[in-house]
Nucleic acid binder design. Structure first.
Lengths: 119, 119
DNA sequence: CGAGTATAGGCAGATATCTTCCTATAAGTC
DNA sequence: GACTTATAGGAAGATATCTGCCTATACTCG
């Protein structure tokens, strides 16, 4: 589907909300797989099939400036016996976009550097 | 199945032979996934289902002293955008066991620190 | 030789991320 | 309002390793 720039899609809203949920546990950063598990746990039935959709959404959101990421030190993952993670955090723009989408309960609101803009 | 100590199972023989094949390309070390791909490519039909069988065989062979392993530097895998590998090499005992199994074309030969022993 | 036991092998899935291919649909254009 | 087009989402799989569960069977012992 074609996309109106500056819009938050439902999945993107879910990702941001879920990220805040996870962040509640103390850590500022989150990784894709944790989001996938959380989403799957809450809304049983959404598998995000093979997680491809989620990772594409995350990459998209980073490009859009809603998220920023860094690679975890590979040694950390190695010590814990798991693959390395890409650690995301929500940017100011991302927080703004979520706030807008949450208060209006509509996913077709528009955000930009000034905040909410007419849709 | 119960196991007679000092015996090479068919899969173990295959692993050692495949490792030598791969080693022909220059590197002394090999990793499990490469073995799995090679085995799958040669004997089409053997998937080694989810590779569980293969990894268990590798661990077993290391315990038995036929193989030795080390973890690849996590940074190397990270740079190449893939999970880290466990790098194996064939020990003297492993080479001996393979030689024995290969020449006799039987997998029920027995090896130990002295080499071939009566089966 | 029959009974019991340990273990090999198959199946499934967790841990993480990414890619490619295809389809469905929202947005823009006229 | 119909047509075109870009893109989101789903399906599948590559890259690596490991664990647990269950079954089949080779081996051992009486």
């Amino acid at each position: 589907m074609r996309r109106k720039p500056g819009t938050l899609l439902p999945l993107e809203t879910t990702i941001l909300e879920t990220a805040l949920d996870l962040r509640g546990c103390g850590e500022e950063e989150f990784h894709g797989f944790a989001i996938a598990k959380e989403i799957a746990a809450h809304s049983e039935a959404r598998t995000l099939t093979a997680h491809g959709t989620l990772y594409k959404a995350l990459a998209r959101m980073e490009t859009a400036g809603l998220l920023a990421s860094r690679w975890e030190d590979p040694a950390v993952g190695a010590e814990q016996g798991r693959p390395r993670r890409r650690l995301y955090h929500i940017t100011g723009l991302g927080g703004q976009a979520l706030a807008t989408a949450s208060t209006t309960r509509s996913s077709s609101q528009v955000y930009d550097h000034r905040g909410l803009v007419a849709s």
